[in-house]
Structures are given as C-alpha cells and as structure tokens.
C-alpha cells in the first residue's frame, strides 16, 4: 500500500518537473521558420544536446532509471512464457544435419572414374580468407553433387623487390619488399559440364574479398565424325581469329579503295585467262 502511494507521489513530482520543463524557454516549440533554423543551429552547435537522452539527463530526468523503477520494458522485449511440456519437447529436438555439418570438415563425394573436369585455383595474399573460401567452395561442390579433390596447397609465389631508401642516389642503403601469393587447387572430377558451370557461377556470385579465382575447364568429346566444335568451312578456319578483327576486315574490303584494287587485279588477270 505504502509503495503504491510512494510511486504516485513520485509520479506527481515527475509530472510537476515536466511542467517546469515546459515552462523553460529551451523547450518551447519554434513558431517561425527563422526561429526553427536558429534552434536547429543551436542544437547542432551544442555537442551535449545531440541526443534526447542527454537532454533529459541535463534537465535532471533519468529516463532509464525511471523506466526500471516503474517496471517499463521496450516493446517487443517481452515474450509469453512457454508451456513447460512444449519447452521440453523443443530442447529434445536436434539441429538439422546440414547445420551440424557446418561445424565439421566439409563433406566430399568420391569420384567413380576420376576424370578431371575442372581445376579451380584460388589465390590470395592473406591466408585466412583463402582457407574460408576454399572450405565454402568444397561445401558448395558437395551439395551440388560434384566430387571434388582438395583444397591442394600449391607452392607459394614469392616476389621480391629491392629499392633504394632515398629518392635520389645513396644506393648503399636499400630496402626489401616482398609479396607472397598463397594458392589452393580444387579439382572437380566426373562432373557434368553444366553443373560445373553452375558451381563456378555460384562461387563467382559469392566471391570473397581478397581471394582471386581462376578455373581451367576441360571438355571431352568423341573421336571421329562426331565433332562438336565449330564447323570448319573451306580451307581457312576463321573461327580462331578475333571476331572484332574479322568484322573490320570485311568493312575494309568493302571500302572504295579496296574495291578499286580488286577491279584492277581482275582487269590484269583477265587477258591471261583469255589468252
């Protein structure tokens, strides 16, 4: 009973303090735009008044303590208590296997034939990022159903440079710099080319910072007449030429000067044919 009375009294006190605050010119609402701008400037220039909490504290009100005293909670904080039976059942549930697998080494599938289909090389200067991403790539390969070997550590590439310390002369005093590139190889075996492409695209989508990727993809085709590559027409295979260049060649040969040259060449050749 007494506690309730005390609280009521304190609430009244707070309210009266609020009335006082309202009377304070600092808490008056600005009436004109000019006034508003001035007030905004004032607020900006006063670093202690940048947030509301500080302002209340300045005015002698402790909102956090007050909230604790009154037993107030932020909205969304409270949860209805679980039924003990349900809680028991929930705690008995195990995590899904694939969630458990995150804490273990990546799973891998065994290759039936061992035919290499794709060599993915990962490179970095900072090994942690690489280790993480290699792990990610292995897991992705497993869940796409690709048998993957690796990550195989390849020899590190060490580059060193020696430069004079000074900007001019003084060759005797020099400094060494180095850059070490760490590499890992992940080999996919027996995968379907489209799945391999999907895997590579997935890795490219989820690229990790500080890790470079390079993939060699191998294609196999039957010997003999079942040729799947670009069709070879005539004697010259232009498919290996740069398409940009070939387009330009066509353009050039359609120019007036070249047409004239062709005409002249034909005119020179014609008498020989008739003779």
């Amino acid at each position: 009973m007494e506690a309730a009375v005390d609280e009521a009294v304190s609430q009244i006190k707070e309210f009266s303090r609020f009335e006082e605050l309202k009377a304070d010119p600092r808490f008056k609402e600005p009436k004109t735009e000019k006034e508003m701008r001035r007030k905004w400037k004032e607020l900006q220039s006063a670093p202690d008044h940048t947030n509301v909490l500080e302002m209340w504290k300045e005015a002698g009100v402790e909102p956090i303590e007050l909230a604790k005293k009154r037993g107030l909670k932020l909205p969304g904080d409270e949860r209805p208590p679980l039924d003990p039976e349900v809680a028991k059942q929930l705690s008995a549930l195990r995590e899904p296997r694939n969630v458990q697998a995150i804490h273990l080494n990546p799973l891998r599938r065994s290759a039936e034939h061992g035919v290499p289909v794709c060599d993915l090389q990962l490179r970095t200067y900072s090994i942690r990022n690489l280790e993480f991403f290699a792990d990610f790539a292995m897991r992705a390969a497993y869940y796409l159903g690709l048998p993957a070997k690796g990550p195989i550590p390849l020899p590190r590439i060490t580059e060193r440079w020696t430069v004079p310390r000074a900007n001019f002369v003084f060759k005797k005093s020099q400094e060494n710099f180095e850059r070490i590139t760490m590499r890992r190889l992940i080999q996919i075996q027996d995968g379907h080319p489209e799945v391999v492409q999907a895997w590579l695209a997935f890795l490219a989508k989820h690229q990790y910072y500080g890790v470079g990727m390079k993939a060699n993809v191998f294609q196999f085709e039957a010997l003999g007449e079942q040729h799947e590559g670009p069709e070879i027409v005539g004697k010259v295979d232009t498919s290996k030429q740069d398409p940009k260049m070939m387009k330009k060649v066509e353009e050039l040969l359609n120019q007036d000067q070249f047409k004239k040259a062709f005409a002249q060449a034909r005119a020179e050749k014609a008498p020989e044919v008739s003779a």
């Binding site: 070939m246 330009k248 060649v249 034909r266 050749k269």
Partner: peptide, 27 residues
Amino acid sequence: EPERQALRYIIHNTTLPQRVCAQAQLQ
C-alpha cells in the same frame, strides 16, 4: 588496334590479289 590487325591480316593473306595487299600496306 582491330583496324591495324585487320590490315595486317589482309597483307599477310596470300589468297587475296597483290594489289589489295599493296593497298592495305599503304593504308
């Protein structure tokens, strides 16, 4: 660069007439 490569291609292409190659060399 594509234009230069195209001209070089025309110059080295022996199936084209001599005059055309000369024109390409000139250009």
